[in-house]
Design a protein around this nucleic acid. Sequence first.
RNA 1: GCCAAGGUGGCGGAGUGGCUACGCGGUUGACUGCAGAUCAACUACAUCCCGGUUCGAAUCCGGGCCUUGGCUCCA
Length: 419
Amino acid sequence: MELYSTLSRSVEPFVTLNPDRVSLFVCGPTVYDYSHLGHARTYVAFDVLVKYLRWTGKEVFYLQNITDVDDKIINRAKEEGVSQNALSRKFENEYLRDMQSLGINAVSYYARATTHIPEIIDQVERLIARGVAYVSETGVYFNVDTFERNGELSGQDGTKRVSRVSDTSKNNPLDFVLWKIGEYGEYTWDSPWGRGRPGWHIEDTAISEKYFGQQYDIHGGGLDLIFPHHEAEIAQMESLEGKHPMVKYWLHTGFLTVKGEKMSKSLGNFITIRDALRTWNKDVLRYFILLSHYRSPLQATDEGIANAAKALEHIRAVAKKDTGVNREGRKAFTDAMESDLNTPMALAAIQALATSGDIGALKEFGEILGINFLRETSAPLSVLQDIRAELRARKQFDVADLIRERMVAAGINITDAPL
RNA sequence: GCCAAGGUGGCGGAGUGGCUACGCGGUUGACUGCAGAUCAACUACAUCCCGGUUCGAAUCCGGGCCUUGGCUCCA
């Protein structure tokens, strides 16, 4: 398989540290609000990647963190007059529910920041001992000047960057916080530097180091996390013992946009996953998402999703009688997946597989993509179908049409073949 | 200002040198108890602009224009 890595800015053969095992870390959400389609896009992409890798026989440990200690959580909890714990547990559950309803179930383990405080403190201590972090009145900071590869991932030259954060307690405005000293309500812990709470970037490296060690295969997340978040992760992890690279394959998903703008909570132009699911089902949403490459920007429009829904319906309508294995079609599918997870091309192969009637492939590949390409036929449904076929054969069209009317009214799509 | 991604037919969206996917839409026909679906064929003046390399470029190189994003929290 070949994957594009942001680190090398090129497509590279995917070679794992262990031949049959893949370690993958994806940045999870900060749980202070409902998740939107932008999140869905990212997590569907990694869900498909992992399912595909597993299908090829790899054992994948897919780790995802949950950021449950953060300014936004503190503020939101205060606004709503609830505890930080209650708020973050609520939206964590809502997030997991949304993921489930989108068929995203490949994650091996979800790790919360707040349950890894000892690991975080330990890592900060080691960074201080290495001489790459320092303690000031307001907290512990990472000294970016000690890390020569700073800016490697984002391609930005640190010296030209203008920080918009003015903080006199930092040596260099680009230094980032590892531990914030202060009282932050219930989510405040004792530490060697005083009571406080962890910075954002350290939680990910503490968690990933615990489960994977200092080097692992893939790190994923949205394009918006490259700077500063992923840069900071690299600086922290690689400063521990100098192991490089922390991760060779950095996979970043493109933005979901609305009218040309990035969908985000701060812009207020977001559609929550649950709202989207009121109009469209998960198969349609996944099909829509996978219709464009994971790194490309994806424009969210009703027309676009409706288009995807029609295309999916077409596949289901065509895929009826099983005519056996379509070798070229199957190869086209795997070739596409091998090529940096080219799902648009893979879906083109699915079209061909449907037309040629390779039901087995549709079922198998449908599981990788998390999309049901076959019409559901439950037992009662097929009994009704049989009865209608019989009625039509006897030319009792009034009764047959009545059944059809009722079925359509109940939301069951039904079409007749010519007699 | 710096950095990044991107500009492909009516629309969505693939494609890193020649033969240009796939889908939606549109047209025509076939089939059809009706509705729908399906099948076949066609459609589509498409590759942001200007140079260059090449026998040949959407694809490589140079310049420009435009869009979006990052440089503050963000999937």
